[in-house]
Design a protein around this nucleic acid. Structure first.
Length: 135
DNA sequence: CTTCTGACA
DNA sequence: TGTCAGTA
């Protein structure tokens, strides 16, 4: 499975650093004026500008264009609905890498996260300290 | 030849 | 969203 396909990205984006608006038009099937209009409607879609004010889209920009196109034309979201969807999508990515472990009080005899060997050792040292206190 | 902005339908 | 003008 070397060519494992990522999410439903029906269009393959060439391996170039930047794309001009005409390239993005062919890749997305959208008209240039639509892409420019979307820049005003979707703040996150902000291709860098060259010295001569030419738009320079990066891969991420092209991917975003494709995603917006899907939301608008396939899922029939309104401009506002698509904006909100993108917001939630980003906040989900931010909170994703949070496999926060459950805090366990120190000194607790039984730690559910520990393996049997570790638990046995914990119990043993716990009993040792208790016996010391009884001496 | 392509892209850009602004304006107007 | 589509189109036209005048540029860079």
């Amino acid at each position: 499975m070397a060519t494992a396909a990522a999410p439903p990205q029906s269009v393959q984006i060439p391996d170039r650093l930047y794309f001009r608006i005409g390239d993005v038009c062919r890749l997305s099937g959208l008209k240039a004026h639509v892409l420019r209009y979307w820049e005003a409607e979707f703040p996150p879609l902000s291709p860098k500008k060259s010295g001569t004010n030419q738009r320079l889209y990066k891969r991420k920009d092209v991917e975003l264009v494709l995603e917006i196109k899907h939301l608008l034309y396939d899922e029939k979201f309104t401009l506002e609905g698509a904006r909100e969807h993108l917001q939630k999508r980003k906040s989900l990515i931010r909170s994703a890498p949070k496999p926060a472990p459950a805090p366990v009080a120190q000194g607790l005899l039984f730690d559910p996260r520990a393996d049997w060997l570790a638990q046995a050792g914990a119990v043993r040292s716990e009993l040792k300290s208790i016996l010391r206190l009884l001496e």
